[in-house]
Write a protein that binds this DNA or RNA. Sequence first.
DNA 1: TATTAGCACTCTACGGGATTGAGTGCTAAA
DNA 2: TTTAGCACTCAATCCCGTAGAGTGCTAATA
Lengths: 344, 344
Amino acid sequence: MDLSERSREILRAIIQSYISTAEPVGSRTVTKRYNLGISPATVRNIMSDLEDLGFLAQPHTSAGRVPTDKAYRFYIDTMLDVKSLPRQQEEEILNYPLRRGDFHQLMQETTKLLSALSHYTGIVMAPKPAETVYRHMEFVRLTGGRALAIFVSNAGIVHNRMIVFDEDLTQKELERISAFLNHEMAGKTLRDMRSRVFQLMEDDKNKYTRLLMKFMKLWQDASYEGEEAGEAELFVGGLSEMFNIPDFRDYEKMKELFIAFEEKHKLLKLLDLAMEAEGVQVYIGSENKYFEMQGISLVVASYRGEGNVVGTLGVIGPSRMPYNTVIPLVDCTARVLGRLISER
Amino acid sequence: MDLSERSREILRAIIQSYISTAEPVGSRTVTKRYNLGISPATVRNIMSDLEDLGFLAQPHTSAGRVPTDKAYRFYIDTMLDVKSLPRQQEEEILNYPLRRGDFHQLMQETTKLLSALSHYTGIVMAPKPAETVYRHMEFVRLTGGRALAIFVSNAGIVHNRMIVFDEDLTQKELERISAFLNHEMAGKTLRDMRSRVFQLMEDDKNKYTRLLMKFMKLWQDASYEGEEAGEAELFVGGLSEMFNIPDFRDYEKMKELFIAFEEKHKLLKLLDLAMEAEGVQVYIGSENKYFEMQGISLVVASYRGEGNVVGTLGVIGPSRMPYNTVIPLVDCTARVLGRLISER
DNA sequence: TATTAGCACTCTACGGGATTGAGTGCTAAA
DNA sequence: TTTAGCACTCAATCCCGTAGAGTGCTAATA
């Protein structure tokens, strides 16, 4: 992968040209638009080499050349100097009129922000119930042997889940359980709580045991079902932006894309994966096995809430994306969302 | 609007043919496919009359004819005998594996059910917070002078809203407010509660007054903002089905459609309107001013929860829809959802 | 030896007929 | 009143021919 300086320059020129025009780039174009003091014929020779190396591809014989996924990867890793977000755009993010009546709305609005500023589609993965630290929990008795478990995080995120009993519990009993759990579980995630409760039940034959046992059994069933389903919620905004991208000006392609969008669990898998890494991640085309689509890239970053990484957000667009502006945009948005969550 | 029996038959034949093939219908087709004992020439004369009356239109001179919105309206109002749902499809609805971990999920899954069985796009409008009768309410204190108001309905629907105080309230004080409201407000909607509280504050100088006053003021601001934003939540499922409909096999049309889908407040207005009426409603093409799109119809029905109408759901598809199956499908789904909510 | 000019070649996109086929409207006969 | 017959219309399709963009190769050049 050791290209000569000149080859790199030409590759960069081709990528940049393609990013801005969406048209295959020919040798003449390169010499005309980027003053490299080199003739088209020379460029052609080098382009041919780059094609052999897998950086470029030709849609057909008499067309110009187009960067491959490999080229984008190389470009992002070695040739891109991501400037921090220009002051003006940072202002735009901060001034974006985010409605945040409740947490759901905040998530949804953030996708719109991402979409509006990038002109692509914005996605946000909400914090996962199982990994959230709750401040408060509460059980509300409903009719028909059912109760609702409600969990509130420090950040004001509310999760709830239905629990079905086969015997009737009074609201009083439920309140005793809540009080006990609230006291015992401060600062723990749902996942931790679950194991802690089981442990308690082993150790300590306290008076809550029978109820708790029953309760936790049911709860486990309920949350297991949730985890199967992907658990974390995915928000998508600005889908229609996809129709403005010349790369996808094709009915069949678009259909494929929208079908992929409906398989949210795959996207969630990918976003989940991105939580591991620090900073902004870029997934190009078929680099990831969960949202593998020709010509499509994701730029994602994890965001924090109360210190911990709790979710991810990002942008879906063509691989032909102006990464130098999109990357800092996603980065900045992730930080802003993190701040909004933490100060709630 | 008094058509002869024969004209009606021909109109019906044309509409049915167009619904099943999506191709403009010519006079020969009518005589061939529907045995009316009449020659193409005669059919042509009648078709010409129907066109003058505004029931048919020609895409171009040498094409067959296509029903207008007026024709669909006439068809639905006077010629459609909606059979109740065939046993088999009712089974399909009842057996559909609806995940319902929480209320959100139930709503989302219902859109998928509608979409899967109709092969169009399913929509569900969730119950509006302001008009829901709550069983339980709760205020949870967060950091930074904020509190979260949580409301739980009989059906297990959870709504929440952030409230920002400029002074710090203890959790104890919040609990006293909750207890008071819970006691005072049983069986009232949020909207009713609001006015009731204001009335109480006038009448009665009880010990909660100062806090309550403060609280209600803030709360009002918060909920006002919510109403502005449309308040009710809209769920959409099966968007990609739109790509399978030959009527919309056009990039620009599709773009227009998806932009319309993103303006959820307009759709919500329409669905809100449909809550007034009993039974299944059909909105054809430009009949409604909120989701006015050439060639698109909505079939919607309101659903009940605990006796009252609380929301609406339905299907969006081409005007060229097999109404005789879609209408009972929507109807049945609305009833099933109502039952699921009420028995929660 | 590396670069470049020149040229033949390839392939797509576009536009202009010509053709086909579906369907109509009109007229005259039944 | 209905119908057969016929001329007419129009979109869709196919079939070129041409223009244009771009390449690869070769031979000349610095």
